[in-house]
Structure formats: C-alpha cells, structure tokens
Amino acid sequence: MTVSFAAQINSVLAALILLASFGLLVQRRIYGLLHIFAWQGLLLSISAAVVGYSAGLHHLYISAALTLSLKVIALPYILYVLIHRLKIHREVEEVVRIPTTMLIGIALVVFSYHLTAPITELSDLVTRSTLAVALATIMLGLLMMITRKKAVTQIIGFLAMENGLFFAATSATYGMPLVVELGVALDILIAAFIFGIFFFQIRTTFDTLDLKAMERLKEEE
C-alpha cells in the first residue's frame, strides 16, 4: 500500500467518521444512536489499523484492537443491556431545532479547520489532514451533550467526544504511547460502570431518565 493510497483511505474514513458525528446529532431513536456509535468506533479502529500498516507501526494494531473491543463491542453492549433493563428502548427523544443544530455543527467544523490549520502545516504525517476532523468530532460530541436532555444520549455524546480524542491522537501523532492509551481505556471503562450505576440512581430518585427533572440546584436569589 503506497503512502498516498493510505492517506486517501484515511481521508475517506475521516469523512465517514464526521458523517457519523452528524448522524448522532440528529438521530432520535436510542438504538439508532447506539448503532451509529458502534459504526463510528469501527471506522476509528480501521483507520488506526490502516495508519499502523502504512507507517509500519505495530503498536497502532494494539490501539486498533483496543478500540475494536472497547468501543465497538464492550461499550455498545453495556449500553444495550442498560437500555434493555431500564426499558427505555422504545423511547423517541424529541430533538428540537434540527436545522439550527446542524448549522452550528457546520460552523464548528469550519472553526476546527481554522484552528488546526497552523498545526497541520507543521506536520509531515500522512494523516495530518484529519486532525481537523478529530477536533470537529470532539466539538460535535460536546454540541450533542448540550442539545440533548436524556441521560443516555448525553453519555453517548460524551463517548463520541472520546472517539474524537482517540482520532486526534492517531491523526496528529500516530497514537499516544501505549501506557497512556491503556490508561485512557481503563478510565473509560470505569466511567462506563459509573454511568451504569448512575442511570439506576437517577431512575430511582427522579422516576425518569429525562434530565429536565434535574433542576433543583440553582442559584437562589
């Protein structure tokens, strides 16, 4: 595989990852979100493997395998089980002002390209052009967390942000050192157990997983 060919594949993957981010932003059904999230993880994992192959870096294969097992299998499975146990799989979330959200999303993508332009110029990696997409994925995850009002969808937004971070690491630097990758993966796994517990705590204390119910703690006058 030549370098330019690898770069092209990586660009296509980056485009698909960005598409998945926009998909997450507008998808209303909970299983739909879960599927898109798993697809995004799969794309990430393939991208890490492709970069690892073309650059001859074997530690990226480990990263790819880690992503595959954590973000394509473990996390979606945990979320699936939680959604099933909490019996919220039929719920359809009301997403207001989709066109506005999409426009803000596009603005964020442009902003990401603008911000990373000076960095990309300095890089000679095959993957450099995708750093902007990585930052955009982080920003879009953040936007999703702001616009959504359900606990489960906020968590999916949070995990999509983590996807963006992973993508940033592979596209800017061919992946962080393995110690860090493993540590981050461990943190995400712990976080997964914590939000699992949280869903039940929120459900038992508020009778709903809708975060609109949580408005007690405000600055009183």
Binding site: F158, F198, Q201, T205, R216
Partner: peptide, 18 residues
C-alpha cells in the same frame, strides 16, 4: 441518594468529564 445529591454528582461527572 437524595435528588439534589444525584443531580450534583451527575453535573460533576458530565462537566468534569467534558
């Protein structure tokens, strides 16, 4: 496990996570 405590913890988790 009081409602304000759960809310505070969720806020802490999400905001610090982000």
């Amino acid at each position: 496990r009081t409602p304000p405590a759960v809310e505070a913890a969720w806020k802490y988790f999400i905001l610090c996570g982000v």
